[in-house]
Design a protein around this nucleic acid. Sequence first.
DNA 1: CACATAGTAGCACAACTGTGCTATAAAAGC
DNA 2: GCTTTTATAGCACAGTTGTGCTACTATGTG
Lengths: 201, 201
Amino acid sequence: MPRIVDPERRRAELAEAVWTVIRRDGLQRASVRNVAREAGLSMGSLRHYFATQAELLCFAMQLVGERARARVRAIEPADDPRETAERLLQELVPLDEERRAEAEVWLAFTGHALVDPDQRAIHQRIHDELNGACATAVALLADAGLVPGNLDVALEAARLHAILDGLAVHAVMRPERVPPSRITAVIAHHLDTLQASPTSG
Amino acid sequence: MPRIVDPERRRAELAEAVWTVIRRDGLQRASVRNVAREAGLSMGSLRHYFATQAELLCFAMQLVGERARARVRAIEPADDPRETAERLLQELVPLDEERRAEAEVWLAFTGHALVDPDQRAIHQRIHDELNGACATAVALLADAGLVPGNLDVALEAARLHAILDGLAVHAVMRPERVPPSRITAVIAHHLDTLQASPTSG
DNA sequence: CACATAGTAGCACAACTGTGCTATAAAAGC
DNA sequence: GCTTTTATAGCACAGTTGTGCTACTATGTG
């Protein structure tokens, strides 16, 4: 009995079932059978939407990027560039359950993307987008003159990006030691030091 | 025909076979069979050293920590505390093939440690050691008066730790964009800003 | 109504997995 | 020299996996 639903919406539902399985049992257990069961579907049904497991997993992986991208796009700039930059960065770290889910799934895929060319390509594209967002945040401060003029934007973007991804991993792996308040504190402190930094290079 | 070798050395060899398989084919493919084949051993033989697959993988995981720990212990303090701190931090990022191998394996395990209690425990212990090393590096500068006195050591350690782990992930996933020179540059720059940072707490 | 299509289900098969079990050869201990 | 231990090998079995394939059902189209 076909359910009349937008096929893309259905694919997203399946991808979310992948997320659920990954978060509960790990990427290793994200088999076609387990995902289908999680989604309340048969194997054959699932394969009507995704011809192969690789396709399913890649889609689930890309969904992480799309969700974050949508959040970033929805940001409304504040009067203060510093405030805008902070909001932007906070969308990219696991501060609530939604972002936490993304971070966990992303981390699981990252470990595997090392040896899977398709997943690696997706990973690199999103990595570059993330780096671009960091560069944007730095540029926001720079353009507002809140930061020394001789500052190396690319280098600062690399440092900021490392902080974001490092914080995400730490928040996921050690939630008691790195709670959301700690994440925001580190980011805020880092922006403080950026604004206060003297000439250095 | 038993080979007369130190059993612990043999276990380390098997663990390195695990590393090789993980780096080439991924953690998912680190089956007892594949690891045994990689080590040139039979399944039964391998299981003489590791009763279960879980034991094998946990040992391989802990070996990452031991290798890094040994390198850190072997550091000879320089005259300049800043130099010492920099050397310490550089032992914990993938600057050469050895550290790169550790980083890749560690990343693969990290993704899975989320859902495996035993692996998670190992991960958290090493995470805390790493954080301690970062705190040590910050304290080195602080004790030498190279850094403002009111600096929050724990917060700075968290930030530095995030940078190290973030850089490691980036170096592994995007080696062209984050080569060793970039890693050292970011670390050096970060220490520069630490030393130059004004009061901000 | 007839017919094509999209959605769902299930089977079959070959491949791979972890582990329990037994067997055998070499070394160590005495 | 005899025995115990260590190291190696291999088989068997039940379970899981990805995917090719067929079949059924409801919806849409003419």
